[in-house]
């Protein structure tokens, strides 16, 4: 209402200035676009450069300007990267370890969040606090004792140690994101179900869980990115090639081929393609999850 009544007044006032102002405005806007565009180039160009050198021969890399385009795309780098290392195996390990951990984290976190926000018990605050405080503990401080514990139960060099670690260390963040959703979510449907004599398990699995699918997919994607990119746990707990994931695998592989830029570039491109594809199709979910994960509420 107030907008409608005041608008004519302001336009009237600013009429004499408009020509001068819009001219300045244009220059200002052009300048701002220049900054934003330059920043976009800084963020994206290193990756384009990576794709370029992944398609170059060694002569091109060492003999020509780094900014030159690959003359004749050398796809052979990709076949060499894929066949000479264990990239295929690392890729497979990354996929199943990531998926299994994401599923476990999401289910366990949902159960906890449900119990804390929907059920009535005295210690719920304390339990929730334990999860939230765990978020502040740097994982590096746990890594030596964890190594020793896994070692004592023969889980060193076993993917079980990796799945357990991924599942556990993602619980606090996942619960934090879920909590925001559960707290604002109406509980009338669940209460009605209780009245109708529904069991808790049915309420959780058939009512609550399906209703939280939007936030579950957000947390799943965020977890997926973290697990896919994780390095320290695998680097510390896994020693045989059989169970290495892509991050650690390519790090070792690339270390061996210091001078073969083409193969290194191709390996790196292979490792980031799944994430970039996910981003291409689900960027809104990722943006939402990253914002929710950092700033609760």
């Amino acid at each position: 209402m107030s907008k409608v009544s005041t608008q004519p007044v302001t336009t009237n006032l600013s009429v004499p200035k408009t020509t001068k102002k819009s001219y300045l405005n244009k220059i200002g806007f052009g300048f701002l676009y220049l900054i934003l565009g330059a920043f976009a180039i800084i963020q994206i160009y290193p990756l384009i450069w990576l794709v370029f050198f992944s398609l170059k021969t060694n002569q091109e890399v060492f003999g020509m300007s780094p900014f030159s385009l690959p003359q004749d795309p050398n796809w052979e780098n990709y076949t060499r990267a894929w066949t000479s290392g264990n990239i295929g195996l690392y890729f497979f390990n990354s996929v199943w370890i990531t998926i299994l951990s994401v599923v476990l984290t999401t289910i366990l976190a949902s159960l906890v969040t449900f119990a804390v926000t929907r059920m009535h018990w005295k210690l719920s605050g304390l339990v929730l606090g334990l999860f939230l405080v765990a978020y502040m503990i740097p994982l590096h401080s746990t890594i030596i004792p964890l190594f020793n514990m896994y070692n004592n139960v023969n889980l060193i060099d076993s993917p079980v140690s990796i799945v357990l670690s991924y599942t556990t260390f993602n619980l606090p963040l996942t619960i934090m994101i879920l909590l925001g959703f559960y707290r604002t979510f109406p509980r009338e449907i669940e209460e009605a179900a209780v009245m109708d004599g529904c069991s808790v398990h049915r309420i959780f699995f058939q009512i609550t869980l399906p209703m939280t699918v939007p936030v579950l997919s957000t947390t799943a994607i965020i977890n997926m990115i973290y697990n896919w990119n994780e390095f320290v746990f695998v680097n510390t707990f896994i020693s045989s090639d059989k169970w290495k994931t892509l991050t650690v695998g390519i790090n070792n592989f690339v270390g061996q081929y210091l001078t073969d830029w083409g193969a290194i570039g191709a390996t790196l491109v292979i490792s980031i393609i799944p994430i970039l594809l996910t981003f291409l199709f689900l960027s809104n979910k990722i943006v939402e999850g990253m914002a929710a994960g950092s700033v609760k509420g």
Binding site: Q43, I44, L47, I225, F231, I272
Partner: peptide
């Protein structure tokens, strides 16, 4: 633009490290 800015955040530290070692 916002999404372009975000892309490096999605990469693994290993990929970023190896890429910048080349840069």
């Amino acid at each position: 633009l916002r999404k372009i800015y975000l892309i490096p955040m999605l990469l693994s530290s290993v990929a970023i490290a190896q890429l910048w070692m080349k840069i």
